[in-house]
Write a protein that binds this DNA or RNA. Structure first.
Lengths: 227, 227
DNA sequence: CGGCATCCGGGAAGATACTG
DNA sequence: CAGTATCTTCCCGGATGCCG
């Protein structure tokens, strides 16, 4: 006997709990990381793929479809000069940022967390927004540029907070140039700037004292015992 | 040619990003909901199963193993009079609560969120901690009891916040008795108390005016457009 | 009853190759 | 560049059965 296959009903927790519904929307593998990569602005398919090492093209396609139909992102065609397709979070999609902050803050205490693994430029920029020590940054006012591979960002320190946007770092008080992992090594791995510069992993231009100070603004929480 | 199968290495994002590591720890299906069910105190295997409709015994076993080896929960043998095994979050496990709050707050705006689906007692109690309007609750001071199926809780309203613990509601200013979905209908579904009482879905004992006021303390955020 | 092992079917994820 | 197509592998969910 053969039954009608019908339309595939996506697996759901069927639970009124908000967290459960969130998992229905973004609980599939890679979904949240796709959102993370779009958190600082739209990207195209190939860039998403490059920034999510390990994702395969078909899974990325499925996630983009799912997130689009959930209203979390939209696909947009850039005007003719560029004429490429990009994916962009909806306003509600951008509101997911606190989820990443809480996930990251919590997991940073994990005994098995290894900050020396590869890291995308986006992750590092978002981690600054999450981990900044507002007391230490209280009286700092500066503009800091980041050239991390294909992507460039500008960070503005003011009133104990840091704003980060994509943009041209030219003219910043300080500019870091290098792969995201090198800057992460300096900020989170305790590797001295001089060492990273000596081996050519990181370039620092502009206010060196500011650079040294910047590195201290993002303390990691204490790990929990028993690895 | 046959290769040694070896120990299965669990799939990982291999990403230094804290959020990605969090997903390595709790990103598998059901893992976060297991944690949610333990958020207000230890439970045994069978109660977890009952409170997570749809989970299968073997998946629950796997999740408990995984969460235990990640240091998120421990299994503990109760002393002889009871002599049952229970699962309890570690202190670090309890620190995951803000993750649920952000997930829930964000997903509550989803066009596809349906607050009338089934709901566990734990979810409802946690949602109160998440959704309370601190301004509205500012000058309320009261003790509220909840008898929701097998489980009972006591909530203490004070200084604009609500504390919720498992415990005996006897002597509270107000006691709700019924299935979690009935109370959820009153708080989030806008169903009048009188209607729920009339059909026997919910029992309200004690201060009725307090009950009516209590129901208004947890406004849902505005949904995003385009369902 | 509480917990775990085992087998099985279906579907999601991963790897690779290919196309407009 | 932006995705399909195909194949394989693994995970999830259900059922059953064992053992304390």
């Amino acid at each position: 006997m053969e039954l009608e296959k019908g339309t595939k009903v996506p697996r759901s927790y069927a639970d009124a709990c908000g967290a459960a519904h969130a998992l229905d929307l973004v609980g599939e593998r890679w979904a949240l990381l796709v959102i993370r990569e779009l958190m600082l602005g739209p990207k195209r398919f190939t860039d998403l793929r490059a920034d999510l090492p390990g994702i395969s093209a078909n899974v990325l396609t499925q996630r983009l479809e799912g997130l689009e139909s959930a209203g979390i992102l939209t696909r947009r065609k850039l005007p003719p000069p560029v004429s490429a397709q990009v994916y962009e979070l909806t306003p509600w999609g951008y509101e997911a940022e606190p989820i990443f902050q809480e996930l990251g803050r919590w997991a940073a205490r994990s005994p098995s967390h290894d900050p020396r693994l590869p890291l995308s430029a986006n992750s590092l920029m978002l981690s600054f927004r999450t981990m900044i020590d507002r007391e230490k940054a209280r009286w700092l006012r500066a503009t800091i540029g980041f050239r991390l591979g294909r992507e460039t960002f500008v960070g503005r320190l003011a009133d104990g907070d840091i704003e980060i946007e994509r943009g041209d770092p030219t003219g910043a008080n300080l500019i870091f140039t290098g792969p995201p992992t090198a800057l992460a090594a300096a900020v989170y791995g305790g590797v001295p700037l001089a060492a990273l510069e000596a081996e050519g992993a990181l370039k620092v231009e502009g206010d060196r004292a500011l650079a040294e100070r910047f590195l201290t603004l993002f303390p990691l929480p204490e790990k929990v015992e028993t690895p």
